[in-house]
Nucleic acid binder design. Structure first.
Lengths: 259, 259
DNA sequence: GCGGCGGAGTGATCCAGGTCAATGAAAGCC
DNA sequence: GGCTTTCATTGACCTGGATCACTCCGCCGC
């Protein structure tokens, strides 16, 4: 397996991609259960020495979700924290009349559980997913004895905050085409941070999910996809895949950041 | 001065109001400069004993801003952190063509400076403002030796994140009237958390600023104000003040949180 | 007091994106 | 393998809020 150290230079700036991270410990005994974890080096688990990791591991458990299955609902007590190890989750908030705003998609390696108290949003699998789960109380106690993880969590929260503010710009001020372009480029960048430099990415979420993330309707999302396809910027492939054909025009539209 | 302990039960749920805080130290020598600070007990400074506070104080300095004067711009190096002690700031991001999204307003007692690296947004005074300023490097060093402040900063980031996500719902899914109702109630709740239970609040920001915060135009904001006034929900008073006449219908519109 | 100026309010018109409706394509299910 | 269901796409039409244009008002400087 190739080292993930390329991720740590923080060159990718888009939503939810790489951010400045603590140094990872890559060597643990081959028979350690977490040694098989495909995302260990992307999470704070990668900060732990084998000994600590073993102690930490025995405080948690794993689970899996079927597509559409909820992990928790807004208002539930937030007494667990999660590391997503496989699959995709959507996080969303509802208005009383059913209008929905998706506030983010989680990919493997993402951590879930920053807020103490009750959950302020719902979490649900978009495709089959697997996770590692820890009791918040135990997790907090563990964090107290590992300040480097506390620092990491703080950086993650700050990074999420920056991403949320970027999304506020998208929702408040961008056109439909600009929103979809921003979303697609963000997905490509996130994929690039995790895999090779593929120009093909899978979209496990439905058009409705994308619409609820971008503050649009599924029809408008669909029409924007068609427009991008017609303009030769992307190609839609079977099995929910998209290929990036021309990055330039999409970046123009996304106008990622102001100067 | 009355204790702020009423704020700590977390009953106010709207944007940027109270959140669970550490216990405040209220007794410091009367001749200590920070003893005159009107917002000390609302900030992390209130966590510090007199001795620490004195050491901390000598690491910083104060400043003031005229209306419209920038504190910093997006892209500037973020090597200072701030505590706003008086006035109001707006934080915003720009798109290359000038479209603007205001991501938040800061009131006295608010802390500014969660992100290391370059500023991801601009900050500018809405009305005359005063602040306390510290070099980030020194501040970070101070935080390292005061874990309770580190914890406080983490909670603040998490709280800001929840507020940002709430704003994503507003920007993605609420109508113009719902946005303004949410904004006004948020202001009243923030004022209530700071002062007595007044039903009158000052709006130091322009209609354009409100529009850029709510993802609308100034015309639509103005029309919505008129609609609320006509419906008898609010009264507009001289000197940029608004009086809340009927909380019920506004709350109905804001539909603060889903169940 | 007076003139200039920026912000607020409001009317008229326009349009991006929402809504409604129909069709087509892919996936689960006995 | 046919049947059902769900999702994506596309078309026709509608509308909430944007845009454009103007008036009014409060404030500032002198």
């Amino acid at each position: 397996m190739r080292s993930r150290s390329e991720e740590e230079d923080g060159t990718a700036i888009a939503n939810r991609t790489a951010y400045p991270r603590g140094k990872r410990v890559s060597l643990i005994p081959a028979d350690h259960a977490c040694g098989l974890c495909p995302v260990r080096l992307q999470t704070f688990c990668g900060l732990l020495e084998a000994e600590d990791l073993a102690r930490f591991k025995y405080q948690g458990s794993t689970g899996r979700l079927k597509p559409g299955e909820p992990l928790f609902h807004e208002g539930d007590a937030a007494d667990l924290v999660y590391n997503l190890t496989a699959g995709t989750l959507k996080l969303y908030k509802l208005l009383p009349d059913g209008r929905r705003q998706i506030i983010g998609f989680l990919l493997p390696g993402d951590f879930l559980g920053t807020a103490p108290g009750d959950h302020a949003f719902s979490a649900e699998a978009v495709e089959p997913a697997e996770y590692c789960r820890f009791a918040r109380a135990r997790f907090d106690a563990f964090v107290d004895t590992h300040p480097e993880i506390g620092r990491e969590l703080y950086l993650m929260a700050v990074h999420e905050l920056a991403a949320a503010r970027e999304q506020m710009v998208l929702l408040g001020r961008k056109t439909a085409a600009e929103r979809l372009a921003t979303f697609l480029l963000g997905l490509f960048d996130r994929a690039r941070a995790r895999n090779a430099d593929w120009e093909i990415v899978r979209l496990p979420m439905s058009r409705t999910d994308i619409a609820d993330y971008l503050g649009l309707t599924k029809e408008t999302v669909s029409r924007s996809f068609t427009a991008f396809r017609t303009a030769g910027m992307i190609r839609l492939l079977p099995a929910d895949r998209v290929e990036l054909l021309q990055r330039g025009p999409l970046e123009e539209l996304a106008s990622a950041n102001a100067g």
